[in-house]
Design a protein around this nucleic acid. Structure first.
Lengths: 219, 219
DNA sequence: TAATAATTTTAGACTTGTCTAAAAATTTTT
DNA sequence: AAAAATTTTTAGACAAGTCTAAAATTATTA
């Protein structure tokens, strides 16, 4: 019931790719995600298929079956719980967690991950606003919205970002926008789409492009 | 500057073996520790030697040089900090931590381990009473003593165990003896060497054999 | 729809870390 | 100190995961 580090990375990559492409995923998409050549990906598809984790037809791409989905969700659960821990208890910034969580997600211990979950008080969102699957692999797909779509005077709280690049996350840190920051749109500038925002302790202006990459929930 | 999981395990094993055998360690000793055949160990000795981590002369065994010692101490530091975390924050028992810490010790991130150290408030002993190297690799070798050598009426505090087997650790859990438990010897039974002990909230009797496997510090 | 382009797969090779079996060196015994 | 036993090393092989180069398939375009 336990998979190699490499296989776990493939499962996770396929899961994420499947969410955009409605289930079936081509070889090259995974090659890009896992940083391997397409020929290597083909080999792995065959192996995972033989292990009963995904459906694979030559030249047609793959899709995760129930076992595969379950396995992928466990890896994602671990990744997101560790990211949460790093940010809330070890002073990591948004943009620093990913590389370390990529390693921690492969630690094999049910007790470890369930105790970590409890220690964090069963969080439902990671520091990027993405939902954390519970023990059973269930997660609520967030009904978060983009800041750019928030109505004037409707208060919202930042729950994550769309763009995960270091540049963007560092930009937000500098502006003191983080997970849980309350934001209210004061004014929509029609000319260029920029927004005037009220945060807890100040007002600021951000471009439309920035606002298209910040997720908020209504409060 | 970063070594593979397998190499880290060899370095750690050599470090520990060297402490008993005064520096130079034979092939078979390591084979037993890492669970590999002697021929595999020879191969790895050659590799680590080429990487400048240890001194190796055919048929003569190996010893860690300064680089090797430093690398081994970093792995030991990580192992012991993770063990501490598991026990103090994630409700792991003494006997459950080892297997998980064996995995966690290979995570590569300076920030992670130094923040964990800070989070735990820079502990100097792990849950087995062994010293934790600091960032620089320095650790104070414990001047702990065995419970069996504690004088009558001299209060001590449990700082660790000599025997790390699950059976023994579970036995102690059942008797409510753990890290930090205060113990005073009320009486030494001459006939069989057994001890009558006073703990915080009760008295109990343990055999000489048990007392030979519990480390205490004077308080 | 035939030619061209792009994607995917196969075939064969390489690396890391391991193994077995046999050879070499060292240690112990007599 | 020679014979026997033990330890260590060498030689060759294997599994996992990757690669390159070439072949096969599918998609695109003219």
């Amino acid at each position: 019931m336990s998979h190699s580090l490499s296989k776990e990375n493939y499962l996770k990559a396929i899961f994420h790719a499947a969410q955009q492409s409605n289930g079936v995923v081509p070889t090259t998409a995974i090659a890009k995600k896992v940083g391997a050549k397409p020929s290597s990906v083909t080999d792995m598809f065959r192996k995972l298929s033989e292990e009963g984790l995904l459906d694979y037809q030559k030249y047609r791409g793959v899709s995760l079956n129930e076992s595969g989905k379950k396995a992928a969700l466990q890896v994602i659960r671990k990744h997101r719980l560790w990211e949460s821990f790093l940010v809330t208890h070890l002073n990591f910034n948004w943009d620093e967690v990913h590389q370390v969580a990529e390693q921690l997600e492969h630690i094999q211990s049910d007790k470890l991950i369930n105790e970590l979950d409890k220690f964090l008080d069963f969080p439902t969102r990671d520091p990027h606003g993405d939902p954390i699957p519970n023990r059973a692999g269930y997660m609520k797909y967030a009904n978060k919205m983009l800041l750019v779509d928030l109505k004037v005077a409707q208060p919202g709280v930042c729950v994550g970002v769309k763009d995960n690049s270091s540049e963007f996350l560092q930009y937000l840190d500098k502006r003191n926008i983080g997970l849980g920051t309350r934001l209210t749109v004061l004014h929509h500038e029609h000319f260029d789409g920029s927004l005037h925002l009220q945060t807890d302790n100040s007002t600021l202006m951000i471009s439309s492009k920035i606002a298209q990459n910040i997720y908020v929930n209504l409060i």
